[in-house]
Design a protein around this nucleic acid. Sequence first.
DNA 1: GTAGTTCGATTGTCCGGACATACGCATTGA
DNA 2: TCAATGCGTATGTCCGGACAATCGAACTAC
Lengths: 245, 245
Amino acid sequence: MSLDLSVDRSSPVPLYFQLSQQLEAAIEHGALTPGSLLGNEIELAARLGLSRPTVRQAIQSLVDKGLLVRRRGVGTQVVHSKVRRPLELSSLFDDLEAAGQRPATKVLVNTMVPATAEIAAALAVAEDSDVHRIERLRLTHGEPMAYLCNYLPPGLVDLDTGQLEATGLYRLMRAAGITLHSARQAIGARAATTAEAERLGEDAGAPLLTMERTTFDDTGRAVEFGTHTYRPSRYSFEFQLLVRP
Amino acid sequence: MSLDLSVDRSSPVPLYFQLSQQLEAAIEHGALTPGSLLGNEIELAARLGLSRPTVRQAIQSLVDKGLLVRRRGVGTQVVHSKVRRPLELSSLFDDLEAAGQRPATKVLVNTMVPATAEIAAALAVAEDSDVHRIERLRLTHGEPMAYLCNYLPPGLVDLDTGQLEATGLYRLMRAAGITLHSARQAIGARAATTAEAERLGEDAGAPLLTMERTTFDDTGRAVEFGTHTYRPSRYSFEFQLLVRP
DNA sequence: GTAGTTCGATTGTCCGGACATACGCATTGA
DNA sequence: TCAATGCGTATGTCCGGACAATCGAACTAC
């Protein structure tokens, strides 16, 4: 066995997490080749001086990520295919930055408006009560890529225009102590109106990719509702899915 | 405590699974109201005659589904928001049937063709080697909704045209003993070509929603590659996302 | 030679306990 | 009055063991 795994018991990092990270790194690095057996759990636990439940917890987390597959009576194998992150709840800003795209943001509108029926329903606030309205244009390489319109309930986040242009909305929300939990999302397409076309530098009637999203924090409160339109020539949604067993 | 939970030790169904199902049913049914505490794990285990690890395993599976939230020093709470399935690897056919839409399928093409470079790369087969090619039109209420073009490596599934029209491709694959594992997917938009417009009953240049997907089985083998186009007026992708902690 | 059987290996499930850690709240102190 | 401290409580982590279920392969019987 070539792998040199080890755990640091004095570290505050949980042992199962240390192990799962090392295994993940070994898979990423190629030390564990696709299709190879991982060796049985009992022996692995003995070799590391850990108990089997701890080793199992580490392995299970990688199974959940889709990197490993367990087979009763056979063993645990490394999956062949390369698995990307299975579609996180991520912001466009972070996605672009991770892709090395250097996103730029131009805040068009940052004000308070009375909530329409649709927005009030999405955010679970009273109709006509005041909510934040933010309109932004996202550019890459100086070209417009997406038009983002977001609504937030009042009093949650301090929406500074300068900060909005420097970072993403989700980062501001996390910095404000909001723990994002889930989002309901719809992706569609439609023809651009004249105003939309002008904003994005397209022709009227050109196909646009649209996304509507309501985000909830861990208490179930709706913390954001947004309607986004993307130029399909410059953006598409790409992600990896896993089957739930 | 009103909830009457119980487990059947003689059942072959795992105890933790019995418990998680009952809890999920209680949440769905409203017996466990959003925001309510679940009661501490120790007492719950004692009440059911189970050990704490077993109870924790049941709770954890619901946390992973996004139905519960754990807080150290506080307890386990039911999440407020309604959570749908977090975007399964599902087939269009199943989605429609679940929505009560009575999908109809018309198989336009079911043949073998030599693989182009793109298809060969996606399916990891040799270029120009034979692969299945299936073209289908999916209709709801007699109206075309999507045009599906799929490629499969040879010898995996028996692709009977009659069966393809009666059920979905994924069901056929599962029935053939293939265990679907993951898929890489891209959603975009573009203007319809004349041929596409005619097939779907739209005008040329009308916006179309597009999806490209490669599906892998649990050994990492690519088992399907497809390019689909949808009429955006009749279909959009809707799903729930969870943040990964 | 082929089909059925047995058996070893490995994961799946479950137990009962132990200590660490973080949160909320009451108490205490300035 | 307000802030710092301490405590109870709940989850987080970890242990060592036990038995069951399943897979694959070697073996046996026909």
